[in-house]
Nucleic acid binder design. Sequence first.
DNA 1: CTAGCATTCAAACGATCGTTTGACCCCGTT
DNA 2: AACGGGGTCAAACGATCGTTTGAATGCTAG
Lengths: 207, 207
Amino acid sequence: MRNATPSFSTKERILGVAETLFARHGFAGASLRQVTAAAKVNLAAVNYHFGSKESLIEEVFRRRLDELNRHRLAALAAVQACADHTLEDVLDAFIRPALEQSMDSAGGAAFVRVLARAYAEHDERLRKFLSDNYGHVLRDFAAAFARLLPQLDKEELYWRLDIVAGALTYAMADFGMIKRKSDVSERSHREQAAQHLVRFAAAGLRA
Amino acid sequence: MRNATPSFSTKERILGVAETLFARHGFAGASLRQVTAAAKVNLAAVNYHFGSKESLIEEVFRRRLDELNRHRLAALAAVQACADHTLEDVLDAFIRPALEQSMDSAGGAAFVRVLARAYAEHDERLRKFLSDNYGHVLRDFAAAFARLLPQLDKEELYWRLDIVAGALTYAMADFGMIKRKSDVSERSHREQAAQHLVRFAAAGLRA
DNA sequence: CTAGCATTCAAACGATCGTTTGACCCCGTT
DNA sequence: AACGGGGTCAAACGATCGTTTGAATGCTAG
């Protein structure tokens, strides 16, 4: 059965390393040989535990997205429990879980980059997988935004949410030109990014 | 010398097809064999005309970035010639050239996606290349924004411009969930995207 | 102790990768 | 007519890709 000391089992080590290398070199650019070498496991272990590279990619997403979705929906519910919640509250419920997950575990920061790559890959297979496991969360948030922005018609709202999602994805993945100064921790760098993002997006949505 | 009827020379056909396939499958995901097959040229033609795959990638960027940079700087100069130009004018000078280039030629739409991929690829070599050929344009625009937003300190401004760049990149590359309806042309779809983007970004920058 | 199962391992599979080679073709110049 | 060079071509190079195989290993239940 399970290893007696599964502090980091073969499967988990593969997932962690794959997450990092997919973030750095892309799905096509990172080979299974690179992954298994870095994880110090046998090459065949990937196909044994996951079946194929494609399935490994999906597992990398599933592992974190399930948790992220739960946190986002919980944060949204907490915000909506308060009758006079603001636009900033809902934005924060969407952004903060991604922010925190990007900092908790070792590979968290890598995952937001993997997520951003998934958008760049126009691969239909991957997009359908993400839509299936992610779509209902976006719909719930869209409904919450719609209630707070009744002056916007549906199409206008969708356009703006699309822009917000893009800015968020981009900012969280550190794609931009802003280099983190060496004297601020990665934690406070991301904290600042989230705050700026919430303010910016709130103003844009209300425009 | 040159072909007598170089309507589309071998070199140009490779560049065009490479742009499309790099946008669709990424730099690592699109092989030279796919490119040369689609362009109906011999496999060896890439290494003959460009030297390597890496150099082909750079040429794909250079061909369009030179033009895009010229148009953006010209638009910025035209805007700044008017003494009472607005934030929206500067944003438009940045966004519209990208919008128009994405519609003029056959491969224009593909290029903005290639550009977005370049951000996802954290490849240091590619980022340096882009920074060398692109950095001064961003600096000029940043200065123009700074004059229009004197209440923002330098750091705050950079954060917001970073967010704007992300939203723009993402929106122009059609990464988002908004599907273009079949009854609106790609042209008017992008036109709408640009308008929404300018309004949203202006509000966010002024917040 | 041993039978049985889950896991790991080295090795090899065929396919495909980027690149190189050398013959060949075309065409303007001597 | 002979030449020369830019361009194209099929073929092959070694490397690396994802995947498969079959034997070795370690652990657990009987």
